[in-house]
Design a protein around this nucleic acid. Structure first.
Lengths: 192, 192
DNA sequence: TCATTTGCCTAAAGGTTTTAGGTTTTTGCA
DNA sequence: TGCAAAAACCTAAAACCTTTAGGCAAATGA
């Protein structure tokens, strides 16, 4: 049948997009391959291992798309391109996006997952090159960017923005504008 | 034994803080009460119903704390107070905080949950009274605020900020400063 | 007093996780 | 070519979670 850890992770990612990440189960995956459940345990340590593998696939894929979007752009263009990648990835692959935020409870992170995470923060730092920020403001700004992107996308996905006008799609570019404007005039350290 | 939906929700919230929201299970809760599992099904429709009840408890509790923090404050003070409530709630009650973001997949939301959600957005809107924003900027700003608060707190909780200096606690006040500054100078509509 | 409701129980069916051990096929090497 | 070892998948079984069905006993209230 040609199963492997890699193959299971990719199939699991597809399954996550179809039924939701928390519905992804070793059993469901075995069913999809028309194979006995126990067979998967040769390729995957346990259920959590499977989830971490899916998370790694998703985080890496997202980093690839982010890198492609940021390449050759700077300043506001780069900021918008990066933000749009996160948002559209979450929209087209909700299960994968949820997976990408799955940090194993046992704090036993794979090196590959950590590396993908590092790529993300480096891409944000690259975007910030178009603005004039020194340390520690640059780190603060990376964290702000991550928070806004992740927060907006998560809230939108969970339907939190569906109760008010205008559509969540309309706020997004204006929020990116606001962040761009903020980065261009990052405030000095407030006394007290 | 004096069980009830209310009581189970509160006990479930405590359990969530101890073992994590996704480890909260009807069985575990029954064990905690020293009672047979099936007994809980008189008070709770099913496992998802239990989770929604816990989510409602958490979202309401958080709204209460937020309201208390914002009362009597305006402008930057109110902004910082509100943000700090979210962050400290998530720190001291990680399970409850996670629960508060649990929207039932079946899109069958309880009225109480929706009401608590509305209180949150109204509190943010109240904070924005200290700044000079008209529609639709006010709605955009509410969404930005929600994104930053939720995003930062989530990323911090999941350990995403633990890989770089300075500590995540140091970035937080500077980010609130930045948001305050942004709200005071919210940009005009960018011409494409 | 007695019928009803309430609250918890036993029993049982079905699903997921994980381990243990078996069989068959593939692979690599002498 | 022939064979030993590894790889891939299987059956069996134990443990736990979810949910439904039906029972008993105590509290309630007319």
């Amino acid at each position: 049948m040609g199963l492997s850890g890699e193959r299971l992770a990719r199939a699991g990612a597809e399954l996550a997009d179809e039924v939701g990440f928390d519905q992804v189960t070793v059993s469901a995956l075995a069913r999809r391959f028309g194979v006995q459940v126990a067979s998967l345990y040769s390729h995957v340590r346990n259920s959590d291992d499977l989830k971490v593998r899916i998370a790694t696939v998703a985080l890496t894929e997202l980093a690839d798309q982010a890198a492609a979007a940021v390449a050759g752009r700077a300043g506001r263009d780069a900021l918008v391109a990066l933000g749009d990648v996160y948002r559209s990835y979450a929209t087209t692959h909700p299960g994968r996006y949820t997976a990408s935020r799955y940090a194993p409870p046992t704090s036993v992170l794979g090196a590959e997952f950590v590396a993908a995470g590092k790529r993300h923060s480096e891409l944000m730092r690259a975007v910030l090159r178009g603005y004039d920020l020194d340390e520690p403001a640059a780190t603060d700004a990376v964290r702000l960017l991550g928070s806004v992107f992740h927060g907006y996308v998560t809230l939108e996905l969970s339907g939190s923005f569906s109760y008010s006008e205008p559509s969540s799609g309309a706020s997004w570019p204006r929020i990116l504008d606001a962040i761009d404007s903020l980065l261009r005039t990052w405030p000095e350290r407030h006394s007290s």
